[in-house]
Design a protein around this nucleic acid. Structure first.
Lengths: 327, 327
DNA sequence: CTGAAAGCGCTTACAG
DNA sequence: CTGAAAGCGCTTACAG
């Protein structure tokens, strides 16, 4: 800052009123103030370019208007859409959202949780939480944690917004089984993410638990690509692959393309999320559609109200199988 | 928050020292404190689950550790990569980054600028700034604005980090001209973004200013798709299209696919950014590569130092034509 | 090595 | 309708 910003005292002085009155003006209590006073405060504030300090206000009110969202990977389009949806809903109730990248890394997540405490964040939204001691401890101390897209660990009580991952896995497993696919492969997400395991377990359940080749992978194209190389070399079988998310599926698809493996003739691919890229760049991908834009209102409802004690129940969003070309 | 968080006073009380000493411990002045004192403070803080309030600290120090980045569209993968790069570099020097979506909307941008002032953000990074009165006024009042990827308006003095968009446009124009392309089309980004016009003007310059069909478009797939429909109906010509960014190019490509227009035989497409999706989902796209991951260090260098007065000169990053299949 | 004290920018119950 | 005053959680120059 070149000049230091004007304070409430500067405005009070210039308009010849007390800071209390200026404060009332900026806290939406204009109706209590005499019209002439309102006018003079407004003029003074404008002349000084005054914007109330959120810091001062937060300190006084003992709560900030900042909500922090932790995401495992901000470059994932599905994650970005969920974040955009939540941000919009939050703005609608006067809150700001801060986005931070945990990068699928437990230490990084814990560091950011500490930051959120330091900022006295109004709420912490965890997209794809990793179960760590720090997180458990924080859940004990606060009731402002919201889990999105992946459930909290069993013994953490906190609201969850997202689909029923197990049920979705079951639906995919049943579909595979009905279609008569063979040579099942599951490239699931990291085990520390509860959602990864739920999707996998559901899939096994839906299949009726026959043998399934399992690979653990981060939720990235690169990882899906490398995992696919593990089994695609064997050209004698037609594998049918359930991917932990669409990004993994893109990676598998690319590996197939490079090896001249045809989809779906020689390889079946099923994704998860139905991120917006599918419509434009991967219209061939059969996947589970998760309604990214329904997250915002559901999350906002959990924070709503000045007291911050929105209802604490979880919201289970619907999912849908989107059958397209690849399966 | 269930219980209200512990304060520095609680820790002081429990450990039997003054708040000054606790403060010193948490501000990295441990070396000044007697070892036994350190130990007792540490124990007390742990017992109470104490995390220093960033709000109290910010108020006292009259500066926060928060940097706000405004992006035109967080779901654009290029934008997301630049943001990730900047965030990482900022974290490296103890700063937090807040991401907010201006959504290519002047009013929304101005609202967020006000938020940034309220938060007393250490710096405001504008990816794709829109030239508004509010922005000019703010540039006058502060010296903590950093323009990324699109230059500030001519009469705003603030550092810029990004490529030379005009030069990149020239390079593409020359390439079109050398290849003997005809029926030039430019689908450029919104005029309020200086970068859009620089790319377009450069393109015209490189071409030698022959007639060019021009369409203004937001930087989105949807928009590129709809703009392409304007000229793709005319099957008698082989158009050669310079797109304002890769997202627009994806939209054009989809329109072509739907109309059975072959690329590059019947239609030439040139993108801009070379976002990470190209490697995986659009390996056919010829484009201008902008080094997304070089932005972070360059931006951090402008903020560096506790006084916050990093060198104020701009950084011009290199660009590169990536010739692939579509042009 | 340590503490008492002032003050950062706000808001609000209280009194008028 | 308005103001004086207390206090939110910190840090730091000053004194010891």
């Amino acid at each position: 800052m070149t000049k230091k910003p004007a304070t409430i005292r500067d405005v009070a002085r210039l308009s010849g009123v007390s800071t209390a009155t200026v404060s009332r003006f900026f806290s939406g209590k204009e109706s209590v103030i005499a019209p002439e006073t309102v006018a003079s405060v407004r003029t003074a504030a404008q002349a000084l370019g005054y914007t109330p300090s959120e810091i001062g206000r937060s300190l006084r009110l003992a709560r900030s208007n900042v909500v922090m969202m932790l995401v495992p990977d901000a470059t994932n389009p599905f994650t970005a859409d969920v974040a955009a949806s939540v941000e919009q809903s939050l703005n609608g109730i006067g809150l700001s959202m801060v986005l931070a990248n945990a990068s699928e890394n437990a230490d990084q997540q814990d560091r950011l949780l500490a930051d959120a405490e330091g900022l006295r964040a109004r709420a912490v939204i965890l997209q794809g939480a990793i179960d760590t001691p720090r997180l458990r401890e924080m859940a004990l101390r606060h009731n402002n944690l919201i889990f999105v897209n992946r459930r909290p660990a069993k013994d953490i009580t906190a609201p969850y917004v997202g689909i029923d991952n197990f049920a979705a896995g079951v639906a995919v497993g049943r579909y595979f089984s009905r279609q008569g696919y063979k040579n099942y492969v599951a490239i699931h997400g990291p085990r520390p993410f509860s959602g990864s395991i739920e999707r996998l377990d559901g899939f096994l359940e839906g299949l009726g638990r026959p043998s399934v080749l399992q690979f653990e992978s981060s939720y990235k194209m690169e990882a899906g690509y490398h995992q696919a190389l593990n089994f695609l070399a064997d050209r004698s079988r037609r594998y049918s692959v359930f991917c932990g998310n669409d990004m993994i599926a893109y990676g598998v698809y690319r590996a197939a393309a490079e090896l001249n493996v045809r989809v779906p003739e020689d390889l079946v691919i099923f994704g998860f999320d139905d991120n917006r890229l599918n419509e434009w760049l991967a219209p061939w991908l059969t996947t589970v559609k998760v309604p990214a834009f329904d997250f915002g209102p559901a999350v906002a409802a959990l924070i709503d109200g000045p007291s911050g004690n929105g209802r604490q129940q979880s919201t289970i969003l619907p999912f849908e199988l989107k059958i397209r070309h690849s399966a």
